[in-house]
Amino acid sequence: MSEEKHEPVPYQTFILIWVALIILTGITVGVAQFDLGAVNVWVALSVASLKSALVLFVFMHLRQESLLFKIGLLAMLVILVIFIGLTFTDVLYREVLL
């Protein structure tokens, strides 16, 4: 692999992302004060996914890495979906759970 140095990410970028993460945390906590049924879990998971994307791409410098790193992440996510999906095709169709 070639040795290409990353350009330093400006301090300001990181601070802005941190502000966004704090605001998103506020949104999750705020939404959780109201009982919206199943919507609560989906809002919580969507906001958590968005926060993860910010951490992965900016804080963890994934944005600056080569395609290989991104394919790696994608492969891991596909494995995770198979892992979760197959588990639930079993669990959801059982007569008696656990």
């Binding site: 692999m1 070639s2 040795e3 290409e4 890495e65 080569s66 290989l68 790193f69 790696g72 992440l73 492969a75 891991m76 494995i79 995770l80 892992f83 979760i84 588990t87 639930f88 669990v91 759970l97 656990l98």
Partner: peptide, 29 residues
């Protein structure tokens, strides 16, 4: 090989995600 070193770390972190996701699947069930 700094890029290789970082890629190795990312691979390790994927296994960590799989470790924790096992616990999150138990939670979901």
């Amino acid at each position: 090989d700094d890029t290789g070193d970082r890629f190795g770390m990312w691979l390790f972190l994927y296994t960590e995600v799989i470790l924790f996701s096992g616990l999150f699947i138990l939670y979901a069930i």
